[in-house]
């Protein structure tokens, strides 16, 4: 069966909420039902039929063709099946997904993977701020699953991360791992200021020594490499990176000592 495909007809005038376009949300709907789904939220809200040409049948395999920074909440609550977007998306892609796979071939806006607890979200382009992070008012970020950004991520990547893995391949902005509680964030490329600020536990893994580290992280010298080796092998096996991130003798900082200070920043030496 051909993938259920939503082809964007033109750049939408208003922001669209695509949270309904998931396998669970579309199961059992007729073509007409789907065309009539309201996805706009302005004074004259658009429906699916206004914005997309819809072809194919397989709701387990959804493709959104063309992209727009105005399409928000793609793959919200995704539990199983696959969604692929051939271009860019707006904010909150993969919001609260629990399983399945969401592939964004372009860039994503803010809060990609916000509150996700399972599944795999891969962004081939860049991601905005608060990758995997909580929305305003929420107090937990990502709680599981795997989030991969092949480009850069903005500020506050992995804010309040609780479980799961975030991998960012071309660097990130300030406050990576802000207030993180547990879980792992791996970054290759340049990392902005004060990663791990207010982190309680968890691991930040960098392919270089961080330039602007908060003074509430202190050097722990060399570290036990069992974990780093294991994690490197995992990232390679998952085809996230093609050579080891941390190397044979990574350095280690512990912090944030302003709180309980049980988090760690591991980094590759000699770069």
């Amino acid at each position: 069966m051909k993938a259920l495909t939503f082809s964007l007809l033109a750049e939408p005038e208003e922001r669209l909420d695509l949270s309904a376009l998931t396998p669970a949300g579309l199961a059992g709907l007729t073509d007409l039902d789907i065309a009539r789904l309201r996805i706009g939220s302005g004074r004259q809200p658009a429906t699916v039929g206004d914005v997309f040409k819809v072809t194919g049948r397989n709701v387990e395999n959804i493709v959104i063709e063309g992209g727009s920074t105005r399409i928000d909440k793609v793959g919200t609550g995704l539990a199983l099946g696959a969604i692929r977007v051939t271009g860019a998306v707006g904010s909150q892609a993969g919001r609260q997904m629990t399983g399945g796979s969401l592939l964004i071939e372009g860039s994503a806006g803010h809060h990609a993977g916000s509150g996700m607890s399972g599944g795999r979200l891969e962004i081939k382009g860049n991601a905005g701020d608060c990758l995997g992070g909580p929305l305003a008012g929420e107090i937990t970020g990502m709680e599981g699953g795997m989030l991969i950004v092949r480009g850069k991520a903005g500020n506050y990547a992995g804010e309040r991360l609780r479980r799961g893995i975030i991998a960012i391949l071309r660097g990130c902005g300030d406050y990576a791992g802000y207030r993180m509680i547990a879980g792992t964030i791996a970054v290759t490329g340049r990392v902005g200021a004060t990663p791990g600020y207010l982190m309680k536990r968890g691991s930040l893994l960098f392919d270089r020594r961080p330039e602007f580290l908060a003074p509430t992280f202190i050097d722990c010298g060399e570290t036990d490499i069992a974990f780093s080796g294991l994690f490197d092998r995992f990232l390679i096996r998952e085809k996230i990176i093609d050579r080891p991130l941390l190397g044979a003798s990574p350095g280690k900082f512990g912090g944030d000592l302003a709180v309980s200070g049980k988090g760690e920043i591991l980094f590759r030496r000699g770069r």
Binding site: A136, G137, E138
Partner: peptide, 10 residues
Amino acid sequence: LLPEHHRAHQ
């Protein structure tokens, strides 16, 4: 303090 408690998800 609690915007998320009545967030008007649409």
